[in-house]
Amino acid sequence: MDNLQILVAAPVFSVQLLIDGILVGAVFALAAYGMALVWGVMNIINIAQGEFVILGGYVTWAVAQAGFHPFLGVPVSFIALFAVGWILYRAVVARVVDRDLFISILATFGISILMQQVMNQVFTADVQTAQSGLGTLFLFEGQVTVAQIKIVAFVFALALGGALVVFMRRSRLGKAIRATAQNARAARILGVDTGRVYAITYSLNAAICGAAGALVVMIWVIQPFIGLAYTVRSFMIVVVAGLGNLAGVVAAGLGLGAAENFAGFILGAEFQTAFIFSLLVVILLGRNLRLRRQRRVLR
C-alpha cells in the first residue's frame, strides 16, 4: 500500500492519473458507442470490435507512412473501415443477424481471429505507431504532464460522438436506424429497408472503431493481437451504461479510463489487466443482483 501513500502525500499525481484516464476514456467510449449501436439495432455483440480499432490504426499508420499527417488518417480510417464493415456484413454478418445471439458472437469471434491473422500477414507483428508531432502540456508547475495528442483525441472523440447523435436524431437514415432498433418488424412494415439499415449500422460501427483506432495509434502503439482489450472495454461500458444512452456511455468510458490508471498505480501494473476483467465479472454480477431484487423471482 506504499503506492496509496504516495497518492495521499502528493495528491498532484492523482490529478495526473485522473486527467490521463479521462482523456483516453473518451477513445474507449467511442468504440463502446459503436458496440451499443450494433447491439441495440441488430442484437449482435460484435467481438471483432477491437480488431476494427486496430485495423483503423493500421490504416492511419499507412497514411502517415505515405507522408501525410496522421490527423488525415482519422477520416481515411473512418471511410476505409466503413467499407470493410460493409463487406463483412454482406459476406458474414447478414447470414447470422436474425439467429441466436450466441451464433453471432461466435461468427464475429471468427471474424476477429481472421482479421488478426490477416493483419499479421500484411503488417507483420511489429509494433507500429504514428507520430502526431504534438508536444506536451505542463500543468501544476510541470508536475502534471499531458500529451497534447490525448487532448486532441479527446476533442475528436467527443466531436464525432456529437455528430453521430445529430445524425441519429435528425437524418432520415438515423431515424430509420432508431426505428429498427425499437421494433424491426414494425419498421419493416412501415417501409424501412431493414437489411440496408443493418448493413449501414454495422459499417457505421466499423467506421467509428476505425476513427478510434486512428486516435489509438497516435496515442499508443498497435500490434495485430491487442484488440481484445478494446472489445472487452466496450462491452463493459455498454453493460454499465445501457443501450441507447450516449451520455451514460461517455460517463462510463471516462470512468473506466480513470479507474484503470488508478488500479495500475495502486495495485501495480501486473494487476491492471486483471482488474479490468475482474471488474467486468463484478459489474455483471452486481447488475444481476440488482435485477434480481427488482424482479423478485420466486426462489
Binding site: I45, F102, S278
Partner: peptide, 22 residues
C-alpha cells in the same frame, strides 16, 4: 449462473482472462 444468455457468455470470458492475469 444467475446470469442469462450473452451476459453469462461474456462474464465467463472475463473470468477466464482475469484468472490468467491474476
Amino acid at each position: 449462473l444467475g446470469l442469462r444468455g450473452h451476459y453469462f457468455a461474456i462474464c465467463t470470458l472475463g473470468l477466464g482472462i482475469a484468472a490468467g492475469e491474476i
